[in-house]
Simulated scan of single mutants.
Amino acid sequence: MIVITGATGNVGRTLVRLVSSSGHAVTAVSRGIEPSEVPAGVRAVAADLADPASLRPALDGADALFLLVAGDDPDGIVAEARAAGVHRIVLLSSQGAGTRPDAYAHAARFEDAVTGSGLDWTVLRSGGLASNAYAWVQPIKTARVAPSPFGDVGLPFIDPDDVAATAAAVLTSDAHKGQTYVLTGPALTTPRQRAAAIEAALGEPIRFVEQARDEAYAQMTQFMPAPVAEGTLAILGTPTAEEQQISPDVERILGRPGTPFAEWARRNAPAFR
């Protein structure tokens, strides 16, 4: 059985569907999850990564665990997994854990706990997700504007469905033990270009508005810790060569290129109408 945390999120929802449709028993975990939120045949268990002990019912009988960076006790989560007989952990981390470990110390702690667990492990360091564009849903719906800082700085944002497909391949194979993969999209896109892609998908004009850094920081710290907001803005504004590099790992694992942002925008256009 494979346990998938964050099962109702942008990555987890697709991952649950992919793994369960391939014939594996799946337990889907998130806070407040309902059976109606998962495909038929998938067990839904409510648990909170901030409380490792709450995972015990979900982990009972599990072979593998897909783990998010969430909560403050990665060692406790790993201990619960080990006690339940889990032999493989696939961690969805952040590219920033490798490129900016001080700013992304939380993710780095999870990586240390997983790689030092004595279990089989694989770390997936994801770049920015295309679904971060959901932050534009309300301003696009209400005013047809897309605000963002650093409008002409390109990064290889990745479709969360590609993250899910990569995670599914890793969870269901023995070929990826002890590997750390960097997951990016197939091309650099700027915020201005991503807004234009959503505009094309909607068939309606959208005005891109370049924000001041301080304005963006104030918004980001409403839902993330200040050090993570600082690190994120540093990546968005002054990315390193490594952070702008197109990683080959998605294509190497999936046997196909990653999905362009424009395709993500077409698929998700209804969210912005």
Rank of each mutant, 00 (worst) to 15 (best):
N268L: 07
D152H: 13
A226M: 10
V42M: 00
P260W: 09
A133G: 10
R125E: 11
T166Q: 00
Q138C: 01
I206V: 14
V153I: 14
R273S: 07
P191Q: 04
G96V: 07
P186A: 05
A229P: 12
A262W: 03
A28F: 11
G85P: 03
A197S: 10
A212D: 13
A70E: 15
G96L: 09
G128E: 13
V86H: 05
E204W: 06
F157Y: 08
A196V: 07
L18Y: 06
P270S: 09
E230F: 08
A130S: 15
Q219P: 00
P101S: 13
A25R: 14
G12E: 03
L67V: 15
D112R: 15
G9K: 00
D73W: 13
S173Q: 01
G6K: 04
V16C: 00
G71S: 12
P205I: 13
V137W: 09
V123F: 07
A168I: 00
F261N: 07
I206K: 03
A271E: 11
A229M: 10
L171C: 02
E111W: 11
P147A: 03
Q222C: 01
A265P: 09
R56I: 06
D60C: 08
F208Q: 06
S93W: 11
S148I: 00
A70P: 07
R144A: 14
T14F: 00
Q245T: 09
I235M: 15
E199I: 05
G23I: 08
Y104T: 04
T115Y: 06
T221A: 05
L254N: 08
V29E: 07
A46Q: 00
L91F: 14
A108N: 07
